[in-house]
């Protein structure tokens, strides 16, 4: 089994940098994007991504819009939403739109890694049963 490929999408660059380092340390392949557009571009360019970690609150294309686009173009890619407290409703809405789960920011790194692995597992199942 190949290393899980994760794309971290957040407009806060220091946050992205640190989390990237920490996730890499936990044996994950991490790609980054600082906006919704960048994330979509990278996915469209054929980057191999299993799980997208998506911040809900971003300037420009926000998390929900980005999620909708991702699910449209790449239905197999799993998405984990990151929200502030007040946007929990957005997280729930995201799950209705097909996101795998949501986490509240700031989140525990171990919890995040766990969710990533669960999402990867689900994706693998979906790939094995393409009929569904």
């Amino acid at each position: 089994m190949t290393r899980t490929a994760v794309m971290l999408v957040d407009d806060e660059v220091p946050f992205v940098n640190t989390v990237t380092k920490r996730l890499s340390k936990r044996n994950l392949h991490v790609l980054t994007a600082n906006s919704g557009y960048e994330a979509l571009e990278k996915l469209d360019s054929g980057e191999m991504v299993d799980v997208v970690i998506l911040d809900v609150k971003m300037p420009g294309l926000d998390g929900i819009e980005t999620l909708r686009e991702i699910k449209k173009a790449h239905p197999l890619v799993e998405v984990i939403m990151l929200t502030g407290h007040a946007t929990v409703e957005d997280g729930i809405q995201g799950m209705k739109l097909g996101a795998f789960d949501y986490l509240m920011k700031p989140c525990d790194i171990e919890q995040l890694v766990e969710k990533i692995h669960e999402a990867k597992k689900k994706k693998a199942q979906s790939e094995h049963r393409p009929g569904k």
Binding site: E12, F15, T18, V19, R22, K105, P106, C107
Partner: peptide, 11 residues
């Protein structure tokens, strides 16, 4: 404040 706090936690 939420974002800076998140960064602090991550750092």
């Amino acid at each position: 404040i939420n974002n800076p706090v998140a960064i602090i936690v991550e750092e």
